[in-house]
Amino acid sequence: MPRSLSLPLLVALCMSLAACAGKTVSPDEYSGFLQDYSQLTEKKLPSGQRVLSWVNPQRDLKHYTRVYIEPSQYYLPLVPTDRRSQAMLSDLSHYYDAALKQELGKVMTVVTTPGPDTLIVRPAIITVSASTQGLRFYEWLPVTLLAAGVSTVMGIRDQDTQITTEVAVLDAWDHEVVAQVVSKGAGLTLKNDKQAMSVDDFKQALDGSALDMRQAYLAHAPDLGPSPLSKQVNH
Rank of each mutant, 00 (worst) to 15 (best):
A87T: 13
N234G: 10
M1W: 08
L190Q: 11
A99D: 07
L45A: 02
V110A: 08
Q133L: 13
L52I: 04
L78D: 13
M1D: 12
V51C: 03
G134K: 00
L9I: 09
H235S: 03
K101H: 15
P80N: 02
C14T: 12
D193N: 15
E176H: 07
M15H: 15
L92A: 00
A179S: 15
W140E: 01
F33H: 01
R214I: 10
W173M: 10
G155P: 03
S6N: 12
C14G: 13
L5N: 11
G105W: 00
L7E: 05
Q102C: 11
F202I: 01
S6Q: 14
T65H: 13
D82Y: 07
H235D: 04
D91V: 05
Q73D: 08
A130C: 12
D171W: 02
L218P: 03
L135D: 00
L40R: 00
F33V: 10
D171R: 14
T152Y: 09
D158G: 10
T81M: 13
G32I: 09
L145Q: 15
L146K: 11
P2Y: 03
S131F: 15
M154Y: 14
Y37N: 00
K43D: 04
G115R: 12
P77K: 05
P228C: 03
A172D: 07
I69H: 01
T112R: 09
L13M: 09
V169F: 07
L9N: 10
V153M: 14
T127F: 08
D117L: 03
L13H: 11
D97C: 07
V51E: 03
Y37C: 07
K203A: 04
N56Q: 11
A205R: 00
M154H: 02
D60N: 12
L9P: 03
Q232W: 04
P77F: 00
A179W: 05
H220E: 09
D28H: 06
P226I: 10
L141I: 15
P46A: 02
R122Q: 12
D82P: 06
H175F: 09
L78G: 06
G105C: 05
G208R: 00
G48E: 01
S26D: 12
L224N: 08
V128H: 06
K203T: 04
S6V: 13
Q73L: 06
K62H: 08
D60W: 07
R3L: 14
W173G: 06
T161K: 01
V233Q: 15
V79T: 11
D158I: 06
D36V: 13
N56Y: 08
L211A: 06
V199Q: 06
V182E: 01
A124E: 05
R84P: 13
